[in-house]
Every structure is written in C-alpha cells, then in structure tokens.
C-alpha cells in the first residue's frame, strides 16, 4: 500500500524569529524608510539634498577625513589584533581566558568612562604630553584626529580580535607541520597555508572595524576637536542643532550605502558574514578564486 502523500507542515521554528523581526521592523525599518523619504521629499520630490552633499564644501571633506580615520583605525586594529589573536590560539586555556578578558574589558566599561579616560591620558599635562615633553616635544593629542584614531583603535580592537580568534582557532596547526614536512620553510608555510586560511577572519574584522569607525560618534565628539569633526558629528549637528532633517537623512543614507557596498564587496572574499561567527573552519568555504 502506498504511503499517503506527506503534507508539508510548516515548521514552527520560524515563529522564534518573529519577536526579533517585529522589533527590527519598528526600530530599524520604519525610521530608515522615514529617513529615505525625508532625504528625497522635502518639500517636493528632489535629489537636491544629495547633490548638496557633494557641493557644500564641508561634507566631502568630512567624509574624506572619516574614511581616512576609519582606514587608519582598521589598519592599526588588524596589525595589533592579528598577533594578539594568534597568541590566543597558542597559549594554554588559563592564559587564553585572561587574554580574552583583557579584550572584553572595553566592552564592559562604560563608553563615557573610556572616552574620558582617553581625554585625561591625551590632554595637555597628561601622561602622553608629559612623556613627549621629556624629549622637548610638546605633543598634545587631545582634540586631534591622531588622538581620535588612537582612542578609536583601542575601543574597536575587540571587533578585530574576536572574529580573528574565531577564525584562527579553526585552523588545524598540523597543516603547518604537513607543509614543513613537504619542504616549506616555516615562514613560507605560514604565508601559503596559515594566512590564506585566516583571510576570512581578517576580512570579517576589517569590515566590522571599518564600518563601525565610519559611524563612530562619542569618541570623536569627546576626544576630537569640533574643527575636525567626523561624519557622525556632522550628522549630529544637522539633526540636533541645524534641524536639517533632509540633509542629515541624505548623509545618513550615503554612509549606509557605502557601508553596505563594502560589506558586499568583502563578502566575495569568502563567507565574511559567517566568518564573524564560525570562522574559516568550514572547509566547504573553499575560495572560488585561484583555480588553475
């Protein structure tokens, strides 16, 4: 006797995401849609607010400064974060736990506390200023782009270290032994085997840090100078002081588009989004590039 045709009962599991979806719809999609309409519809349908971004003489400068700052922060984060994450994969569980805590402390500290600490460290008469004065250099990093860059690098470092650690701990170190056994110098083995396998984690960290840097508000506002503001400060100024909602919306949309473009570009380097969580340990993520 033939089995009765199976009726596909929809899995109730998808109900689990309903609350999150509802919340996202209210707090993300609605305001985003509102921003979009603001940016093209005040008072009538127009692209003027977008063209103004490129012609007002301020926005482009701030955008360029923001991009440069974000780039430097990202580079600093990867240069500091890669060796740190590598070390985390090489030490015993106790030391690894300690290193993890050190990474996470910035997360557990109030944003205000961290930024005011940086002000104290970087201001005139602070430790950094006093140190350089010993060499006759009156360096004040407070209210400078350099100071902002330093503080942002510290605050954003966990976003580099965590995905990197996740990726690096998924790499089987016996592959390095195998490579050496097959005739590779240890350094060659690192570049040909370890580095390519860690690339997913690197890209994930780069994207996280860079996109977060683009929208960083508190640190530039507190540690930086108003004369050298970044894009988030510009947004704040337009919404809270100038009440230029259409202009602010257009700027916000532009930053969002740039961020999304970056993420999708980075995704081509192999499972970036998933790499944030599950690392390059899944070998099914084989790159489609480099095929002979």
């Amino acid at each position: 006797m033939a089995d009765p045709p199976q009726r596909r009962i929809p899995s109730p599991q998808w109900l689990l995401v309903l609350p999150a979806l509802a919340l996202l719809a209210v707090i993300l999609l609605v305001p985003l849609g509102r921003s979009l309409t603001y940016s093209v519809d005040a008072p009538a349908w127009t692209l003027d607010h977008y063209t103004a971004l490129f012609t007002d003489g301020v926005t482009l400068t701030v955008l360029a400064r923001t991009a440069l700052t974000a780039t430097i922060v990202t580079i600093v984060a990867v240069l500091l974060g890669y060796p740190y994450a590598y070390l985390m994969t090489r030490v015993g569980p106790r030391l690894r736990g300690l290193l993890m805590v050190i990474v996470l402390v910035p997360f557990w500290t109030s944003v205000m506390a961290r930024n005011f600490a940086w002000i104290i460290i970087l201001q005139r008469g602070g430790p950094v200023n006093s140190f350089f004065k010993l060499f006759g250099w009156d360096l004040v990093l407070y209210e400078s782009v350099a100071g902002v860059t330093i503080a942002m690098s510290q605050v954003l470092l966990p976003f580099m270290v965590l995905p990197l650690f996740s990726a690096l701990s998924g790499i089987d170190r016996r592959l390095l032994l195998a490579a050496r056994g097959l005739g590779s110098h240890p350094i060659t083995a690192f570049w040909k085997i370890y580095w390519p396998l860690s690339r997913g984690g690197v890209v994930a960290g780069l994207i996280l840090v860079f996109t977060l840097s683009l929208g960083f508000y508190v640190t530039p506002a507190l540690v930086g100078s108003p004369q050298q503001s970044l894009v988030a400060q510009l947004l704040g100024q337009r919404t809270t002081q100038l009440l230029d909602f259409p202009g602010a919306s257009a700027l916000g949309i532009l930053v969002l588009v740039v961020s999304l473009a970056l993420v999708s570009w980075a995704n081509r380097f192999g499972g970036t989004i998933s790499a944030i969580g599950v690392a390059a340990s899944t070998p099914t993520n084989a790159p489609t590039k480099d095929r002979p």
Partner: peptide
C-alpha cells in the same frame, strides 16, 4: 629542520590544505 629532510609524511587526519584543490 624538517623542510630540509626530504621526507614524505602521512598524518591520521590527512592534513590536506583545505583551500587548495587536489591537484594543488
């Protein structure tokens, strides 16, 4: 050092390079 000993080595976990094809 190992890379100068010119030995082939087979591991229990195969230790194939996951980002390379069979030919590579």
């Amino acid at each position: 050092p190992p890379h100068k000993r010119n030995l082939g080595m087979l591991f229990q976990n195969y230790a194939l390079f996951p980002h390379m094809t069979v030919a590579q």
